[in-house]
Amino acid sequence: MEEDNLITRAKAGDRSAMGELHELHARRVYTAVRRLVGNDQLAEDLSQEAWVRAFEKLELFRGEAAFGTWLYRLATNVALNHLRRSSKRSSVEAGANLPRITKAQDDVIVARHVLIQAIDQLPPGYRRVLVLHDVEGWTHQEIARSLSCSPGTSKSQLHKARARMRELMQPVSSSNDDMRDKASL
């Protein structure tokens, strides 16, 4: 396998092999981190941190899982650890005072942007559960293990997050019915 060869070379310190591995998985890593943290600048820093950590720990990768899966889990952990640390530093919900989306979009791709904006505006606690469950497809058991909470807490957070999403996707400038048709994809 080409990727196995790249991993072997990267373990030996071959920078071009590392670059090729990055090229192969950069989007997946960045996307996972970006969705969880809801912020471009922070996502850029954490994505880089995840890659540096991955190359530092590459010796520990034994090939039991696919490299992409291992890397994805590592990147997710970097993002979740950051969220955990930042929530300890401040109990203020980052999304609480952000402006609501003001425009309904009738283009499917732009509607997708409305959705992404709404995710970014969620409080971090809601966002991480919604992203892990509804976007990344984790089960409540997996989320509970990762966040050190009970599956019941994960479910409860998810329902609250979806309700908040629905609320955020109601543009203030148009009537409810009009918005529902346009923004709900």
Binding site: R15, A26, Y30, E44, Q48, R112, L115, D134, R166, S184
Partner: peptide
């Protein structure tokens, strides 16, 4: 419909200079 759209969100492009920054950190 919102849940379906969430599960179908496309991947995002990292910044163009990400690899340069990672190399510098390494």
């Amino acid at each position: 419909r919102i849940r379906m759209a969430l599960s179908a969100l496309p991947d995002l492009d990292p910044p163009a200079d990400e690899w340069t920054a990672i190399e510098a950190k390494l």
